[in-house]
């Protein structure tokens, strides 16, 4: 536990601040934007489980996100389900079920092959959502459902902000435990030395498959939260641009850091909202920012922070500690002499 002491206190502090922000007078629009960050953060962190931890780059992540969104939208509009627990669990389950199928197809390949297959699978799901009007409402999507009250609390934007924050915390905590468990370490091993892992007797395929399902599960949950947030589900929720965006979040924040993608989601959402109100050329500016980060911080922002900032912080702490100890010794030694 001590190993993670500093990080844990940083995380707890961050959470405390985030939870207090709305009452500290965060403007309503930023409450909305932060809610979006939390939701997309869950999906991006889940993708990191695949990209950073297992070393498998998937372009099908948006399809699981979108399946989650449609599951919630359909349960709300057709079956009048008003329980978050039921709809969100169903969203996660549906996404996992779809991933169970996709994994069988995609994980037959490796590397670029896997990437292309997931890209194609994502397009298939998008095409289905776009064309299967009877179920998905086609291009127009599904509207006509609203957030039910959250337990005893009203479904206000602030309450939903807290709900999404809690969902993000629980999800990321679970993912953190998974990634630091023996299972997660095997995934790391597969990323680094697949052949050796195979030689050691690990069934690589089944580990990758399990990671694929886990990533989809959390993506589905995030998609469900997103549908409630927007009161809307449409093919845009599972379109390829969203898959790409999630990958950018992971890379910006730092692949393999789990918390980095949350930062990546925040940067992506806040930058696009800031620049788009300044100029029509905002996609160009975003592009330049991405390229700059990839060129000068290829490990991502959190990656570079961990590499540069944390060691120097640790060194500083160690130095101070050594100084304290030697100071203590010095103050002792005269006494001893006397």
């Amino acid at each position: 536990m001590r190993r993670y002491g500093l990080r844990l206190s940083l995380v707890l502090a961050g959470v405390a601040i985030l939870a207090a922000l709305p009452t500290l007078g965060l403007p309503p629009y930023y409450v909305s934007l932060f809610t979006q960050v939390f939701i997309l953060g869950i999906a991006a962190a889940a993708l990191d489980l695949l990209v950073g931890q297992t070393g498998v780059v998937s372009f099908a992540h948006a399809s699981f996100f979108g399946v989650g969104a449609y599951t919630v939208a359909i349960l709300c509009t057709r079956y009048n389900v008003s329980s978050y627990v039921i709809t969100l669990l169903a969203a996660a389950a549906m996404a996992t079920a779809v991933a169970a199928l996709f994994g069988l197809v995609a994980l037959r390949a490796e590397g670029v092959g896997f990437l292309i297959i997931t890209l194609a699978l994502n397009q298939i799901v998008w095409g289905l959502a776009y064309q299967w009007v009877a179920v998905t409402g086609g291009e127009n999507g599904i509207t006509g459902f609203f957030r039910p009250p959250i337990g005893p609390f009203a479904a206000s934007n602030v309450n939903y902000y807290l709900y999404a924050l809690a969902a993000m915390l629980v999800s990321v905590a679970v993912m953190w435990v998974i990634s630091h468990s023996p299972f997660g370490l095997v995934l790391l091993g597969i990323r680094e030395r697949p052949r050796r892992m195979r030689a050691l007797g690990y069934n690589i395929w089944s580990y990758q498959y399990a990671a694929f399902l886990l990533a989809a599960l959390f993506a589905g949950l995030a998609g469900g939260l997103f549908a409630y947030y927007n009161a809307f589900a449409s093919p845009a929720d599972l379109a390829l641009p969203l898959s790409t965006q999630m990958l950018i979040m992971v890379i910006l924040g730092g692949a393999g850091t789990l918390f980095g993608p949350l930062l990546g989601a925040a940067i992506l959402i806040f930058l696009s909202n800031t620049f788009s109100s300044l100029t029509e050329r905002w996609p160009t500016i975003l592009g330049i920012v991405y390229v700059a980060i990839v060129m000068y911080a290829p490990e991502g922002l959190l990656g570079i922070a961990q590499k540069r900032l944390l060691p120097s912080l640790n060194t500083w702490l160690r130095l101070r500690q050594r100084r304290e100890v030697s100071a203590a010794k010095q103050s002792e030694s005269p006494g001893d002499a006397a």
């Binding site: 001590r2 002491g5 500093l6 206190s9 940083l10 502090a13 405390a16 601040i17 207090a20 702490l317 160690r318 101070r320 500690q321 304290e324 100890v325 100071a327 203590a328 103050s331 002792e332 006494g335």
Partner: peptide
């Protein structure tokens, strides 16, 4: 004598202080 604190604890304390400082600054 009073300053003789076990090494590990001292480090943890420093970290906690630092973290608290960061929290305060951010808040």
């Amino acid at each position: 004598m009073i300053f003789r604190i076990p090494k590990a604890h001292s480090a943890g304390g420093a970290r906690r202080v630092l973290a608290a400082g960061l929290v305060l600054a951010l808040a």
